[in-house]
Design a protein around this nucleic acid. Structure first.
Lengths: 335, 335
DNA sequence: TATTATTATGCAACCGGTTGTATTTAAATT
DNA sequence: AATTTAAATACAACCGGTTGCATAATAATA
């Protein structure tokens, strides 16, 4: 059932139907009501695809969810969903926009630039820079209206929005320093730009505190939790003397806590842990996890706003949102 | 830059360009290559909206993420993201489909039927039945091609895909019964259809074991964690004698564990806990959380397959996927 | 009642591609 | 060289709406 069919039924022209359904004043109230009723009766549904094609007043925004190398990382980290939600909210608030979701499926990262090249979306938001810097640069050539959640990189052709990861790493470290901790370990994979910055903040905080950065206490790990457990277990065997751990994500932190507990040590008494992202569960896990907060609502809004600046003006600057440590702390002694 | 511009540049007709870009054999290889090169040089991008409008070979599937009443529930539960991911994967595997994402924003549930009424998507998948049974029924009238992740309800006009929540509740309870637990409490909000079934499974398992269901040990709670903490704390004050807890979700379970620990009791020694969903973090939290697994990969695939059956044949049946308890257990004594 | 102003509706072009069919061009056959 | 056959390209209609402009219908004015 198309509009012309409905027009025939109503005994009027297509244009009248179009205007009637749009509620235009150019059609008498009676005709309008009659046609609208008729449309309802016959369960007529306007073809949005045709409408949008003609009007071209709805922007389609592609939202991309890359995996983090590991197939399952993305699917498990609630932080990504919260970001997605806040991006959707921010788009919704703008009005007249469609959110086209695309996610990583196979292990070939070229889908990102492929998406940028072939889909004629009006803009792209990538939730998670991951290891795809080069790929994202390539994508940006095809779709200049692209904003990525992540960290600033050298020779970057896309725009990033992120939190101050360097500062975050520093705050986390200083937090534990202020509680008298002196032997640090860092858990995270510094191949990831964001993790690397957090790591640098961590190192600098230690340096400023006059503490030697002890390289052998650093461990690499994927975001996935099994790998994290193993890394942590190995670290504990190798170097059991640290009393403070900075983890690059809450997921890692929670895995680490398990590994530490399994090793027979107590958190936070023996080892204090600080995570990153401050996912909801962090507040409710046992023991409560201290974490660096990245404000997702602000982040989603900033991603969208930045993209719109880009679309309207053709340029935008990479920006950061607030980073802070949540007040609650795993280090407070439990009885 | 539209196709006709490119045609002018190339000195050929629009149709030749169209065919050249589509890689048709009807255009000489030389012309084809020349045009493709030209397109690349001029950074021409085909208008997918126009293409899809004309070809009508791409189905648009709306994926809806309702909130769970509480504004923040959805955004925090990784289970939803995992479901979303697996739905996206399943759609991707089908090919020729677009995933249009829409989520709850304000507190008005009518957006669901509004979406069904006004957006001309080819089908709808709703991830989370929540409390919106009536609303979903309404939506189904506008878009019969609608599949909902949730539980079967009386007088239901939409199709559901879900796991066997009744069985899940039963398995969870029997698991703790087999470990000698005898005093049970249930944490969850039975207004939610899925939770209600889990609760019924729980009650029946107790009945079959010859245990009186002790109504005063049941507590209602939203999925959100603050409310859960409070409910749990109150329950502990009121009735401190139970040694087993069935929680309607892992999120609830983790909150509950915290409340129990804060109360000075030990998990699992004093109170054994079983959750639901088996989110990734459940395996890595401390203590490890037993949980009922719902296979998300299968779920996403089944949601999509069911929707396609519906779209092709005009009818489909509500189905269930496997439910099982994960082997690892919080009840195993820790030393 | 004839004429003008106003309002309601219809016509046809258009959005940017795709595709069946007609036409031109080149190659093959006699 | 003339004719048939095949290959390459062009033409024009179409997808399902929207919208500027023309026209028909109605109301207002002389």
């Amino acid at each position: 059932m198309k509009m012309s069919d409905l027009a025939k039924l109503a005994g009027v022209s297509k244009s009248t139907v179009s205007r009637a359904l749009a509620g235009s004043e150019r059609v008498t109230k009676e005709t309008r009501d009659r046609i609208q009723q008729l449309a309802k009766d016959h369960n007529y549904k306007l073809d949005t695809r045709a409408r949008n094609f003609r009007k071209q007043d709805i922007l389609t925004i592609g939202v991309l969810l890359p995996s983090n190398g590991r197939q399952d990382w993305l699917a498990t980290d609630p932080f990504v969903l919260e970001m997605l939600g806040s991006v959707a909210d921010a788009l919704e608030a703008k009005g007249n926009h469609e959110l086209l979701l695309a996610k990583h499926t196979n292990n070939d990262p070229s889908w990102i630039s492929e998406f940028a090249r072939t889909r004629s979306v009006d803009g792209i938001i990538v939730i998670g820079q991951s290891l795809y810097h080069a790929e994202l640069n390539l994508a940006a050539e095809h779709q200049p209206n692209m904003v990525v959640w992540g960290a600033q990189m050298p020779e970057q052709k896309y725009v990033t929005v992120g939190s101050d990861n360097y500062l975050g790493g520093k705050i986390a470290t200083e937090h534990l320093l202020s509680q008298g901790r002196r032997h640090f370990a860092f858990l995270g994979d510094i191949r990831y730009p964001e993790t690397k910055l957090r790591y640098q903040g961590y190192r600098d905080a230690l340096k400023e505190a006059g503490l030697d950065y002890r390289t052998e206490l650093t461990t690499e790990s994927e975001h996935a939790s099994d790998a994290a457990m193993e890394s942590m277990a190995e670290l504990l065997r190798r170097e059991p003397s640290f009393d403070a751990l900075i983890a690059a994500s809450d997921h890692l932190a929670i895995s680490a806590i398990k590994a530490i507990t399994d090793h027979g040590l107590k958190v936070p008494q023996d080892v204090a842990v600080v995570g990153y992202d401050n996912i909801t569960l962090a507040s409710y896990s046992t023991p409560t996890l201290s974490s660096i907060t990245q404000d997702r609502q602000a982040a989603g809004k900033l991603l969208v706003d930045t993209l719109f600046t880009l679309m309207e003006e053709g340029k935008a600057e990479s920006t950061m949102i607030e980073t802070r440590l949540m007040a609650r702390s795993s280090t407070s002694a439990k009885q």
